[in-house]
């Protein structure tokens, strides 16, 4: 039971990170990003290649991977998203799906479909009260907590406040001298780094394949939806809850119920309480 919960918290941390990246982009730019997981998948594969192919140390490869993640997100935001932001929501949603397809195809073309594992210095485990805990599990949970705390602090900084202002209203903050460009670029850059962290953690604790992205995408969406899509804490708790629920269902109901639980959760939550379990109802001006 405890074993299941710890594994659930570990997987839940990846979901939380993915959800945080999506909430960040949504809060700042009002774009639901279907490409978010792929924006982390490509840098994670680059990191694997740096460690496995170029024999770089993990401590050097991971920062490079994060930089690639930041750069990729910034480029995508600038070239694909920003030119069409003036059009309706529809176009941006479809554009992120197109970006998802393109990056996923590139990953498949470059690295194929065979599963990889990122070697990390955090292998091994220890025993607490009869329960085996892997260092990787602690690392995942700690990283999730750290990113959440960082984001909460970030949204209190002047740049973070501007970001929220832009999400609410694209016009008035500009009149007050807020640079929309900076806000958009920063949010996508941060989100790219966070998505990369999620995929890296998953890639070194379990396996890295070209399918990891679409899996984490749905889980991240579920977590963010549970959390109401506007709340940082909500998204984080949503991810952990989903991870634990999945693992318990997998252990005590059936293995196939594990994959269905996230999808059921999203359909049920959206039908019953669309603003999410932690979200507040958003009133929009007509």
């Amino acid at each position: 039971m405890w074993q299941q919960i710890i594994s659930g918290l570990q997987a839940g941390s990846w979901y939380s990170l993915m959800a945080l990246a999506m909430v960040l982009v949504l809060k700042a730019t009002d774009v639901p990003n279907f490409a978010m997981a792929e924006l982390g998948l490509f840098p994670a594969f680059c990191t694997w290649a740096l460690i496995d192919g170029a024999h770089l140390s993990w401590w050097l490869a991971v920062p490079i991977g994060l930089l690639i993640g930041v750069a990729l997100s910034v480029v995508v935001e600038r070239t694909a998203i920003r030119p069409i932001l003036a059009e309706n929501h529809f176009a941006t949603v479809l554009m992120t799906i197109a970006v998802f397809v393109v990056i996923n195809a590139v990953v498949q073309l470059v690295w194929g479909s065979e599963p990889r594992k990122i070697d990390s210095p955090f292998a091994g485990s220890f025993t607490v009260a009869g329960q085996v805990v892997a260092y990787e599990q602690l690392l995942s949970i700690a990283a999730g907590l750290a990113v959440m705390a960082g984001l909460i602090l970030f949204f209190r900084t002047p740049l973070g406040v501007r970001m929220q202002a832009i999400a609410e209203d694209r016009v008035t903050p500009r009149l007050l001298g807020v640079s929309v460009t900076t806000v958009f670029r920063t949010s996508w850059a941060l989100a790219g780094a966070i998505a990369t962290i999620a995929l890296l953690l998953q890639g070194q604790a379990s396996l890295l394949t070209d399918q990891n992205g679409s899996g984490l995408l749905i889980k991240g969406f579920v977590a963010a939806t549970l959390g109401g899509f506007s709340s940082i804490t909500g998204a984080f708790v949503g991810g952990l809850a989903l991870g634990v629920a999945e693992n318990l269902a997998g252990a005590y109901i059936s293995t196939s119920s594990k994959t269905a639980i996230a999808l059921l959760a999203i359909v049920v939550v959206l039908s019953i309480k669309p603003q999410g379990l932690f979200g507040r109802h958003q009133v929009r001006e007509v």
């Binding site: 639901p32 996230a262 999808l263 959206l270 039908s271």
Partner: peptide, 20 residues
């Protein structure tokens, strides 16, 4: 749910439905 959801929630719900 679509009658109450904003665009992208609907995108997520319908995508989840297809996967389900």
């Amino acid at each position: 749910p679509a009658t109450r959801l904003r665009g992208f929630y609907l995108a997520i719900a319908t995508l989840a439905f297809a996967e389900l």
